[in-house]
Design a protein around this nucleic acid. Structure first.
Lengths: 124, 124
DNA sequence: ATATTCAGTCTACAATTGTAGTCAATGGGT
DNA sequence: ACCCATTGACTACAATTGTAGACTGAATAT
């Protein structure tokens, strides 16, 4: 069913999640400056996303307006869950520990996590 | 340089991380039961890993023994960091929050995270 | 010594992915 | 009413990935 969204497709989704419905040409303009795909490439990625059932479109005169069918949060949640399952045997603590070891956590991040933990503990 | 390790290749790496040096045929046997590749497939994946510079081999009589050149922790760390950068703008708190929202965190996990946080705070 | 077996190397091949060109239709401007 | 620019559809094509067969040389068993 849910064929995976690829890297390039994800960049398109990121634009759609920011602004939609939106035309292919506008996605092309909106495109994160460093990646400079041709408009054709954007269109190909859009059709593939439509095939995969994660984007819908509606006619607007001669062109189409595209719109994401899945929420960003749903995607990130499932991607994060897959990663933690695959690499950390479903345990979140080791994941955090590795992230901290790497670049480290910012103070803001630490605070947020603490608050978050408080909340989670109260749900006991 | 570091061409990415693919899903299938990662399964082979997981065997190597458990036991190495090890021969191709033994990797084949060790293989997580549900995935039942042919021995040829295992060999192909091994050569690709060698090409990618993440696995080395040494002769042992007629066969070769393979050995990972990167540590599992290094791989998971960089994978986790890439994910958090790509999907959560480098913030760890939202990642944890999403993971909690999904399947939820086990009590064990919660405790571990708390202890971890204590430690991190002390490094201030 | 010889036939069988097992190891590694080479080759294959379809599906997916990244990246885009060509073409035909159609809507908008004059 | 007509031409042109823009759009979507179709096609292309190389690289990567998953999956494995064929071939060759060497070790083993008889």
């Amino acid at each position: 069913m849910r064929k995976d969204i690829t890297e390039a497709e994800l960049d398109v989704m990121d634009v759609l999640w920011l602004e939609s419905p939106i035309a292919a040409s506008d996605i092309h303009l909106q495109q994160d400056s460093q990646k400079k795909w041709s408009i054709q490439t954007v269109k190909t990625l859009l059709s593939r996303l439509v095939e995969k059932g994660v984007v819908a479109y509606e006619r607007d005169g001669k062109r189409f307006l595209y719109r994401p069918l899945i929420k960003r949060g749903d995607y990130t949640q499932s991607a994060a869950t897959r990663l933690v399952d695959k690499l950390f045997d479903g345990r979140v603590a080791p994941l955090i520990s590795q992230l901290a070891e790497g670049r480290g956590l910012s103070d803001d991040d630490l605070e947020d996590i603490e608050r978050l933990l408080e909340g989670l503990k109260h749900e006991h």
